[in-house]
Every structure is written in C-alpha cells, then in structure tokens.
Write a protein that binds this DNA or RNA. Structure first.
Lengths: 192, 192
DNA sequence: GTCTATAACGTGATAGAC
DNA sequence: GTCTATCACGTTATAGAC
C-alpha cells in the first residue's frame, strides 16, 4: 500500500541528496521529477516554489539534529556519545555523497535567499553551536575529555574545521575528513 | 592613458568579486558587462566561455598566494610572518565581501566542472596545503610556535577551520573568523 | 494528485557589422 | 575590441483538463 504523502517524501529525499551533493543552485525541479518518474508540475504541487522546498529541507535537517540532542540538552548526560555520534553522522553523510551540509549549501547563496530561508539558516547554525558548546562544557566538566579556554570559541572552531573538511573532502576524498576528525580527537585528549 | 588590456583586467576584477561573494553559479556575464558599462559580447571576446574566465580567476588567485610564499618555499626563513600574513589576507578578503575563496566556490560545483578546472582546483588545494605544512614544520623547528603531532594533519585541520569559518562568517558576521583565528593562535602557543 | 501545455525569463554562446 | 542581433536552452512557475 502506498501512502498519500509518499511522493512528497520521495521528493524531499531526492532533493536532500541533490542539495547536499550539488548545492542549492545545482539542482532543478526537473532533476527531481525525472528521477521519480513524474512531471515537473507534480513537484510544484507539493512545493509551489523552490524556496518552499528549501525551507522544508532545512527544517527536516534541523529536526534530525534536534532528535539526537534533545534529551541531552534537557537532562544532561554523557557528552562523549553526542560528540562521537555527531562525527559518525557527518562521516556517514559524506560517504553517501552528501558532503555539502545544508548550512554550507545555503551559505553560498545566503545574500540572495528570501528572508525566511535566511532566518532558518541562521537559526540552524545558532542551534548547532549552542548544542555543541554544551557538549564541550559538559564533557570537560565530567572529565570525559579536556581542552583549554572558552568552550564556545572551541565549539565554533571545531564546527568550522568540520565544515571546511567536508568541503575539502569533495575535492580530495573523504580521508581528509578522517584526518581532521582525528586531529580534533587528539586536541580533546581523546587519543586512541 | 588606457591600456589595451584594461577591459580584460576590469572583467577579472569584477568576476573575482562576484565569484567570491556569490559563488560560481551565482553570477553571469550580464552581471559583469552591465557593471562595466559594456555589452555581453565584449566579455565573451575576452573569455569565450565561462570556464575560461573561471580558469583565469583561479590561476590568478594561485599566483597571488604563490608570490607571497615563493621565497619562503625556496630559501626558508621565519614562518611566523607567513602564518600571520595568510590570516591577515584571509580576514581582509572577507572584509571586502570576498568570504568565499575560489576553492570553496568551485568545491560546490566540483563534480560538474570541466576537467581543466577540476585540475586547477585540486592543484590549488595541494599547493596551499604543501606550503602551509612547511610553514608549520619550520615554525615548530625554529620554536616560533609549538604544536604536537603530524604537521600535515595539523595544517589540514587549520586550513579546514579557516575555510569553514569563512563560510560561517557569511551568515553570522566576520567576528566568527576572528574567533577561530584566535583559537588557532592559542593552539599554536601564540597567545597574545 | 498528476497531467499537458505554456508562459516569462535568464543564461551561455555565436555571427557578422562597424 | 565592441557593437547589435539572435539563438538554443534550461529554469521556475502557472492554468486548466483529467
């Protein structure tokens, strides 16, 4: 049996793959419809404008990260699994050809994006930074790992390194991401 | 007096600005020609295809970085000025609205780029990494700064962090770049 | 919900006059 | 070296039949 929302989900699946492999300007409605074996207008029925699609995509991605972090943010708990889960998730995405995270994709076109999409992008980053800062703070407190200085600055630097590594991985292979993740581990006193 | 190559240079200037502020897909020949007060065809005269323009841009950018590093690579010398010159250059570019470095711009569209442009992008990254690794090695040797572990992995991580910070700076302001650069300084034992 | 058909537009690119 | 004129194409998006 096929649910009514099936096409909508398939559109979003394909769009996510395209967004994270080609960037926002790098895919069209035709890329989606032809892959699903439907017509252009069908996609427009579910997402009238490309902006609507983009908004849904970034919202979905935020939900994914939120689900993994909600419990931690609410009640605390060990920080290490959060850290390693995040790294594993990132690596997994890249291995699926999803090297460009939505944030990275929209950052390129940011200046030309409609306001709601700009807002969603900014919030996505703020949310991620807030969560990751807390992970670092808790982890240091619980002595799961160690680092010096301001936790937020450290969180920002690690997220930036991860973001940049994803970009580089597109050109020179995912080993680069592994190298950077190892370096981060080492800097946090998590040598294996 | 106006030199014959004047238009060509103006095209490249404008194109560089557009590439680094909107990405490769984010600007058109019209954006360039209208800004210079000439027609579309004039731009095509100097750069028949957009690929030619892109190739010239990345080549020019490589030359800029090469000029700053050639002497160092050839004869050695203090590493700290190289390091700080690079950070200053990066920050300056961002302040001019050139947050997206050519490497970052082309990494998004990498898979769809013609082979020569792919090659130039890869070489640009390899060259930068090679130079920066040597800067770190020499600097550690001369005790200008300090860090542990493999120099190449460290170089890669710092370049990645810088790259990611530029991306984030587009959304949340250039203070983010400052924060990350400070963090790098701290990690290299260069606290001020 | 999906289709056909089509609009309106921007794009990269070329030919040929000046 | 720049112009006018034009092309072929892909894009987002809409109207209306089924």
């Amino acid at each position: 049996m096929i649910r009514a929302t099936d096409t909508r989900e398939q559109i979003m699946d394909r769009a996510a793959q395209l967004l994270m492999s080609r960037g926002y300007k790098g895919f069209s409605y035709r890329d989606i419809s032809s892959h699903l074996g439907v017509k252009n207008a069908a996609v427009h029925y579910h997402f009238p404008a490309k902006t609507d699609l983009a908004l849904a995509l970034i919202e979905e991605y935020r939900q994914v990260l939120r689900k993994g972090s909600a419990e931690f943010m609410a009640y605390g708990g060990p920080a290490l699994p959060q850290l390693q889960g995040f790294f594993a998730f990132t690596a997994h995405q890249c291995k699926l050809g999803r090297c460009i995270c939505p944030f990275g994709a929209f950052s390129i076109d940011y200046a030309e994006l409609p306001e709601p999409l700009q807002k969603a992008t900014t919030e996505f980053m703020d949310e991620t930074l807030k969560w990751f800062t807390q992970v670092l703070e808790v982890g240091r407190e619980q002595k799961e790992f160690s680092f010096t200085g301001d936790a937020k600055a450290r969180a920002l630097s690690i997220l930036a390194a991860l973001q940049g590594a994803r970009q580089m991985a597109r050109i020179n292979g995912i080993e680069i991401l592994d190298t950077v993740v190892k370096q981060i581990h080492q800097d946090l006193g998590l040598d294996i």
